[in-house]
């Protein structure tokens, strides 16, 4: 019962299909060697366009950012080499590392809430899978994912304004006493932008989890029911363990979104009030484009990248161990 059902994951039951292993088997066989080798080069040829774009638009900017982080540069005139000084500044200045703490707080809203709510939503939608309502529910939940983040930011800054819909609803149900300008209050600004993030991420998580759920063998549920399990027991003993892969994907994607958040915050609060919602992405932008300190901005960007990797990679390793 605890064993997750067999999954059709490629790496689980056969060697991973990268080119190295294919070459080995080809050499071992010795038959059709030439044609296989040609096939191998042909393979490279197929990935070439994608590889070129990847090198040009992903790897090259990363390397250049690292290079810039070694200089004191305003973006236009000749730069001066400063070595790792920019990195020392990043770790010494609280206005530079402070935003990182805000970003970690955002993980609660960008990751934890959407995944928990996503599980509940997906389980509910699955229960009503036969009805027309399910399709509608899926669409509604997924819409935030389709809307550009900038638009989401604008919509929510209206909703959360002091005379916005949120406060109007609160007043209508007699909670007029707690209404406030949610994005302009030191105590509520970060949770408020966090909720915008939760709203956006919920659709992605729900859809991923729903897809995962549809792959669970229905006979497992049947067996559980025969053993007398209720819906809750089914959820915790079958659904949840079966969704480990999907949950890890959700955690990875949403944690990255939280740590490198920019769009929503830039539109709704610009880091205010009083730096309460300042995140590293925004700080990098301000350093590079309003203060023209490209070197320092690059150093913070590299630090952020390492930080994201440091948080996300262990999550990946964890699942691999679990699988073994």
């Amino acid at each position: 019962m605890n064993q997750p059902p067999a999954r059709s994951h490629p790496s689980a039951d056969r060697p991973s299909p990268h080119f190295g292993s294919r070459a080995v088997s080809a050499r071992r066989g010795g038959v059709h060697r030439t044609s296989l080798r040609r096939g191998r080069w042909l393979g490279y040829l197929f990935i070439l366009p994608a590889l070129a774009f990847y090198l040009l638009f992903v790897i090259r900017p990363i390397l250049l950012t690292f290079q810039y982080s070694m200089y004191d540069w305003n973006g236009v005139t000749k730069a001066t080499w400063v070595g790792f000084n920019n990195y020392l500044k990043v770790f010494a200045d609280p206005t530079l590392y402070g935003p990182v703490l805000n970003a970690f707080e955002l993980i609660i809203f960008f990751s934890f809430i959407p995944i928990v709510l996503g599980l509940v939503t997906a389980a509910t939608v699955r229960r009503i899978a036969e009805s027309r309502l399910a399709g509608l529910a899926r669409t509604i939940v997924f819409i935030p994912q389709v809307i550009p983040l900038v638009a989401a930011g604008i919509i929510w800054s209206w909703l959360l304004a002091s005379n916005g819909l949120v406060n109007q609803l609160l007043s209508a149900i007699g909670l007029g006493g707690i209404t406030k300008a949610w994005l302009g209050d030191f105590g509520t600004a970060l949770p408020a932008v966090g909720m915008i993030g939760a709203w956006v991420q919920l659709g992605l998580c729900t859809l991923l989890l729903l897809a995962g759920m549809s792959k669970i063998d229905a006979s497992l549920y049947e067996a559980a029911r025969l053993d007398g399990a209720g819906p809750l027991r089914e959820f915790f003993s079958i659904t949840l363990p079966s969704l480990r892969q999907e949950i890890v994907v959700c955690v990875t994607v949403t944690v990255i979104a939280a740590l490198s958040s920019f769009d929503i915050i830039y539109i709704s609060t610009q880091g205010g009030p009083g730096n309460a919602t300042l995140v590293p992405g925004l700080q990098i932008f301000y350093l590079a484009f309003s203060e023209n300190r490209v070197g320092l901005a690059s150093a913070l960007a590299v630090t952020l990248m390492v930080l994201v990797l440091a948080v996300v990679l262990p999550i990946q390793l964890l699942t691999k161990e679990e699988k073994a």
Binding site: Y68, G75, K78, T80
Partner: peptide, 13 residues
């Protein structure tokens, strides 16, 4: 990828 690693920037301040 690295543009020969020379210092970025063109004109002298």
């Amino acid at each position: 990828l690295v543009n020969a690693c020379s210092a970025p920037g063109t004109t002298t301040e």
